[in-house]
């Protein structure tokens, strides 16, 4: 219990503008529902990144409207009906674009910090 609280405390807020990129990246690994996306991001970040539900669903619905992702209702393995999202071709293009911007940003910040 204590360890979980510790983990929760160490979680960091997502950098603004990175949520779209992370969600698209998570969907690269396969179609997933909202809960699955948040779990995937949490575990892949070593329990550091926690996506707020209040940010995740607005983002998902917005990206669906932008046609970066598509949605359909399906059953999970636990027989739970859930809305599964998958990345579209346009979403992949967007991801590549976000990714290159991110890389540039990281390199730029690193070069400042290490100067």
């Amino acid at each position: 219990m204590k360890s979980e609280r510790e983990v929760y405390r160490n979680r960091v807020e997502l950098l603004q503008g990175t949520l779209d990129m992370l969600v698209l990246q998570a969907l690269q690994w396969g179609p997933q529902h909202g809960y699955g996306i948040s779990q995937a991001l949490r575990s892949r970040s070593g329990e550091v990144l926690q996506v707020e539900t209040g940010s995740l669903y607005p983002a998902l619905h917005r990206m669906e409207r932008q046609k970066w992702i598509a949605a359909e209702w399906r059953q999970t393995e636990q027989k739970q009906r859930a809305r599964f999202y998958r990345i579209t071709a346009e979403g992949r293009r967007q991801l590549a674009h976000d990714r290159s911007k991110w890389d540039t940003m990281v390199a730029a910040i690193a070069s400042i910090l290490e100067a």
Partner: peptide, 10 residues
Amino acid sequence: EEIEAHRRMA
């Protein structure tokens, strides 16, 4: 329903 599913799975 989508958010309720999220809650149940969690």
